[in-house]
Design a protein around this nucleic acid. Structure first.
Lengths: 100, 100
DNA sequence: CAGAATCCTAACGGATACTG
DNA sequence: CAGTATCCGTTAGGATTCTG
């Protein structure tokens, strides 16, 4: 339990995984997709996910530089979790809308 | 997504929910169940969960004092998430065991 | 394009001790 | 029993600016 939270707990990590489920993305594309996250923060989260074996980082030695991020099999095994979090978060947001 | 992480992201929050799925628990019982968490930290997490409508806190005006924590319906709706996190965390831990 | 460098701060998690 | 009080260090997250 705590292990999972440690891997997944970062504010943007699961959002990153969610967007990578649709296929590899380059750094700036990911940055735009994920939301209002600064490059510095996104880089940290990506490095964490990489270290945890969730994300794969591939550098293409080109000009201009290209770096693609994709999910490892382990990362893809988070798909169910992403779906549940997404659903639950949606329901929770709705509930807030109703209560307020 | 981010909403869900905000509610669930605390280091002990999902562990608390997990243990409350088995029924209401008193503060110290919960403290023992959850693990090496200090009262101060546990209190914070519980107050957060209460504010988010996940946990219900009931005080029984007795001597000695008794306070029971239980899940709200919203809290119980996290059961699936708990199960997935638990499973995934277990698998991840095993994988670590294999790789190292 | 993909980040690194630098800086800041709020808050989180924790240790320890004390109390109605 | 169920916390509160006080203190602490780390670090996560963010803003801004710069670069190979």
């Amino acid at each position: 339990m705590e292990v999972a939270i440690a891997v997944v707990g970062g504010s943007w990590k699961m959002t990153v995984v969610k967007h990578l489920l649709g296929g590899p993305l380059r750094f700036n594309a990911l940055n735009r997709a994920v939301g209002p996250v600064t490059p510095r923060v996104l880089t940290r989260q990506l490095r964490d996910l990489e270290a945890d074996g969730v994300v794969h980082r591939e550098v293409f030695p080109e000009v201009p530089p290209r770096v693609e991020y994709s999910l490892t099999p382990l990362g893809e095994s988070l798909a169910g979790l992403v779906a549940q979090l997404d659903t639950w978060g949606g329901a929770y947001a709705n509930r807030l809308g109703l209560v307020r």
